[in-house]
Each structure stands twice: as C-alpha cells, then as structure tokens.
Nucleic acid binder design. Structure first.
Length: 547
RNA sequence: GCGCCUGUAGCUCAGCUGGAUAGAGCAACUGCCUUCUAAGCAGUGGGUCAGGGGUUCGAAUCCCUUCAGGCGCGCCA
C-alpha cells in the first residue's frame, strides 16, 4: 500500500527532475477525511527548488500518470499531498489477501538471513522473576516477528552454570541441608535465601538421608552445586515452556571452558596484542574500542572473571557465522554493553552486526506498594506466581503493549482487577466472535469457502471501507515493527483492528442479510481473522476459538 | 561525580527515524442485549506533552540546560 504510493511519487519526482530527493516520507493523515496516505515531500523540497510547497505539490500531482489507484488526490494544509485510495483498488487488494492468505502479509525483509537472538539467560540460581518474563515475552515476539519476515532465527539461552554464583547456590543448599539435619552450620553471608533452596535441601534429605551430614563442603561441593543448579535450570525450563517460550539452543558456560573456547579466546586476544599484565592480573585493553576502562580477564588468583567466558561466548557466536546477532538484556546490564562491543571489535566483527537491546526493569507492585525483588534475600514474586495469578496471555500482553525501554509498573492488584476487562481479551474476543459467526453461517448452510469469489463491491459502508483499509495496512505495520525491532507496534495495531471490528459487528449483521451480502461480509470477517491470528501468533498469544 | 533509561489525561501506557486539531485502555458519567458471544457498542468529561532555552516553514518528537524517578559505574556474576 505504502510502497504503491511511494513508487508513484518516485516516478513523478523523477519525471519532474527532482532527482536529489533523499527520502520520501509517507504517513497517515491525522483525520481520515483528509485521505489514506499523505506526504509532506513538497514542503521538504520547496526550499531547494525555491518554489512554494503548494506549487510543487501541484506539479507533482499533475505529473502522476496512473491515478486509477486513487479516488482522489488533494493538496491540503501547508502543502501536504493526500491520497485517497479508490474502492476498486481496495477490493482488488482484499481479494488478493483472501486468495493467498498469509503470503499476502509476509514481506521478505530478511531474505533468509541467519540471525541469532539471545534472551532471558537468567542465572540458574533461582526461579525466573517478572523481569525475566518481560525479556522472555519480548524475545519470543521479536523472534517470531523476524521469523515471519523471513529471517532464519535461532533462539539461544546462555546458561551461567560456571563460577561463583552457582557455587554459592550449592553452598546455600548445603548449609540448609546441614541445618535441617540439626547441624549448626553457618549460612553463607550472601547466600540465596529463597524457599526454593530449602526445597532442594529437603529433596536431598529425602533421597540421601544424612549421607552428607557434617561433610566438608569442599569434598562434596561438586555434587551439591551440580544437583542444585540443574534442579533450578529444569525449573526455569519448565517455567519458560509453560510461558510459551521456546529456545533452539542452550549454551552452557561450563561447556565453553570444557571445550577450550575460553583459552582459545584469550590466546586469540593475546595474539592480537590486546592483553597485558598489570598488578598481577591480566587485562583486556577494551579502552582501545570505546570502553571507559580496561577489564580484568584473569584475576590475581588465576581465576577467570565472568567477563572472560563472555568473551569466549561472543567469539563463538562470531564463529557460527550469523548474519546478525541480537542480545536482549535487562537494563541493569547496560554498563556491560561497551565492553562486549569492544570484544566484538577486537575480533574484527563489523560494528552493527551485534545489536544489544535493553529491556527495562519491571517494577512490581501490589496495591500501589512496591514488592521487593531481591533474589538473594529470597523476597520476590516469581514469574510462575504471576503466570498462575493473572494468566499467561494477559502477562505477555502487558509486556507487549509497552516499548521495551519504558519502565514498567506491574501492579498485581490492578492487573488482576482488570483481568475480566483486560485489553488482551478485547483482541481475542474479536477473533472468537468471528469464529462464532462462521459457525453460525455453516449451521445455516451458507457456503464459507472460496470467499475471494464473493462480491466484494458490496462492502460499501464507511465502516467496511475503514476495515478494509486497516487490513491492508497490516503489512506496513509489520514492516515497521521489523525495522525497529519493536513487536509492540503489532499489539497496538491489533487492538485498533479489533475496535473497528467490534464497532462494525454491533452495527451490521454478517449473516441473515441478502445471500450475496452474507458472503461479502464473511469475506471481510475472514480477512480480519487472518490478520488477528497472524498478529497474535507473532506475539505468542493464543487465539481461542471461543471465549 | 560520570554513564544509560524514563517523565504525555486521575491511573497504566502509545505516539519520539520532526508534519496538519496530541491518542488508547482503565477509572467516572449517560444510553444500548427477543436477532451472528454485552469479555461488546454508542456517547460525555478529562492535557502547562516535567520546567526553561534553542534549531525551522513546522517540535511531544532533534539539540542544550534544570528538576524528578529508575538503573549501572568491582580482580562480583
């Protein structure tokens, strides 16, 4: 739709000799009476060509050869050119949609490019919380979106199963284990205090009784660490599965060490001359690549830092040779961006091929009062609890009606009280209603097949025309969402389309009209349904047939 | 102190790659179910786009600055 207008404008501008025009903006006018598409291009070039915008607009208008697509083209305001599509054009496009269905919606933006999206990647030291849920919902929707745009998407979860944190988890479980068996064992200072730690300890007691009682932690640490983090990881996997999130690959940090990737990465950086020794530690010269300070990769005690394995991890990503990489991180990690980007540049990776998206924090409230979210203190509401309390679709929808960088207030009381009238149901309900109409039609013996053959010219009311225009606009929104990597644009669009449908539904009957009109309106409903289902699928939200 | 993000209706948020009269949901108020699902529809009220400067034909949108909030600035992960 937009492309059509753009093409026409380009031809016209070329014809007029306005070759040097950078980009033609095309937008939607503020009021539908003005038209369907609009361009301020005449205003933009008026200065360079020393003519009034209106004059230029007039010239452009006169030079447009193929006007059949439009009902009218007006010059309005300070020099906008407004286009209103002809009904014939709208009907023919709608017919195409009904014929080819999804293929009409799909734009081959990715051209089969391979892209890896890494998201969630929460440490397996505790259950997922709501912030992870936001990252999960966003990552999943983005993956689906890019997939639909013909990118070959691989979804990856990075497991921090090495290092201090999982060790601390193991120790926390060990301490609880001892305490539950009445051994006076000190709980680690910074240990994990959540109830899940007790659960694991109890599980161990049930399985192994007092086999490890009074053991020296160092001699059994491997067992406790391994058992504990694996337990947490499988719980995380279960939570994600129930939240409807799918991953293709799970990259373990331990594996990176085991397979030698970490040593290799260090060696590689060393060979490039980006490693130096200072004060007994080894540093990566990240300031060479825009970071504010150099970073330690081998500590004085010979241990690697968290960053070291991340260097190896990203090096491995490079080796896998994706066309693009996306990392979705919680905003609390933003200070980490420069150093990871520095790594990529040190490995000569093109600057823009790694995109790091930040998802802002979720501020969890209950009745306006903040709920503490400290994993170590063990006070937090888990994603699981929220899922169970307010539902998966509702939770996702809340995340997906916000820009990723908006700071989100998630008030459990408000969300729950709105559950019955939650916006997600508004969209799902539109789909369910359409299904109901079809069911009704089938019951009456009305042919609901091959609706592209219906007489679409009968769709003449302002409401119907408005819906057709909205439907045909979907690919435009889709493309914008892909370009900006912002799935929430789809969410808002679906809400708007649903509103138009509900309004139409209330005013007109689809069936029990004249036989030919039955089919026309069913065709319209079918088109709406195709889009609602497609959009919801991208968002990872279910589309129930009845509600 | 430095860096990143945010500030839009009573509340939660869209709109931010500059365009015409700033939108939605919730909340409030008034109407609409004997016909395809009322989880719906029609309508009313509601704004210093945090404040101040600047850029230009045009600024919620870009730049500077002040204020407010969140987050981050480890040989932690």
């Amino acid at each position: 739709m937009k492309k059509k207008v753009r093409k026409i404008l380009e031809d016209s501008l070329k014809f007029l000799g306005f070759e040097a025009i950078p980009s033609i903006e095309i937008e939607v006018p503020p009021d539908e009476s003005l038209g369907d598409m609009s361009t301020p291009v005449a205003m933009a070039v008026s200065k360079t060509f020393k003519k009034s915008p209106k004059e230029i607009a007039k010239e452009i208008l006169n030079s447009i050869k193929d006007k059949s697509v439009f009902e009218k083209i007006d010059i309005a305001g300070p020099g906008f050119i407004n286009f209103t599509f002809s009904k014939e054009y709208l009907y023919s496009e709608l017919k195409k949609l009904l014929e080819v269905k999804k293929d009409f919606l799909r734009k081959d933006i990715g051209r089969g490019k391979r892209i890896q999206i890494e998201f969630v990647s929460a440490n397996p030291t505790g259950p997922l919380h709501l912030g992870h849920g936001r990252g999960a919902a966003t990552g999943e929707a983005l993956s689906n979106l890019l997939c639909a745009a013909n990118y070959k998407v691989e979804r990856e979860y990075y497991i921090n199963d090495a290092g201090k944190q999982v060790k601390l988890l193991g120790l926390s479980v060990f301490a609880r284990y001892q305490q539950l068996l009445n051994v006076d064992y000190p709980f680690p200072e910074e240990g994990y205090k959540g109830g899940y730690v007790d659960e694991i300890a109890i599980e161990l007691i049930n399985k192994y009784r007092d086999r490890y009682v009074k053991s020296d932690f160092n001699s059994v640490s491997d067992f406790f660490i391994e058992y504990s983090y694996k337990k947490m990881l499988s719980q995380i996997q279960k939570d994600l599965e129930d939240f409807g999130i799918h991953f293709d690959t799970w990259q373990s940090e331990r594996e990176l060490y085991k397979e030698g990737s970490v040593d290799l990465a260090i060696k590689d950086l060393h060979a490039k001359g980006y490693i130096y020794e200072k004060e007994g530690a080894f540093w990566f010269k990240s300031t060479n690549f825009g970071d504010d300070k150099d970073r330690v990769i081998i500590k004085k005690d010979g241990e690697y830092t968290y960053f070291t394995s991340d260097i190896a991890y990203h090096r491995k990503k490079i080796e896998k040779n994706y066309d693009e990489l996306i990392n979705i991180w919680g905003a609390d990690h933003h200070g980490y961006i420069q150093r990871v980007k520095a790594v990529m540049r040190a490995f000569d990776y093109p600057k823009d091929r790694l995109i790091i998206l930040l998802v802002q924090m979720v501020n969890l409230l209950r009745g306006g009062k903040p709920v503490q979210m400290s994993k170590r203190a063990g006070e937090f509401v888990t994603l699981r609890e929220v899922m169970d309390e307010v539902g998966v679709d509702t939770t996702k929808f809340i995340f997906l009606t916000r820009r990723p960088d908006s700071h989100l207030d998630f008030d459990l009381e408000i969300v729950k009280s709105q559950t019955a009238e939650n916006p997600v149901f508004y969209v799902q309900y539109a789909n369910a209603r359409i299904n109901s109409i079809f069911k009704h039609a089938n019951g009456k013996g009305i042919n609901t097949e091959s609706l592209y053959n219906a007489d679409l010219n009968l769709l003449e009311s302002p409401e119907e025309i408005r819906i057709i225009k909205k439907i045909l606009f979907y690919p435009v929104i889709f493309e914008e969402a892909v370009d900006t990597l912002e799935p929430h644009r789809i969410t808002f669009y679906l809400h708007e389309l649903s509103a138009l449908f509900h309004s139409f539904y209330n005013k007109y009957r689809v069936i029990n009209t004249e036989p030919s009109l039955n089919r026309s309106r069913l065709a319209l409903c079918e088109a709406i349904r195709i889009i609602l289902k497609d959009g919801l699928e991208i968002l990872g939200i279910s589309a129930p047939e009845k509600m």
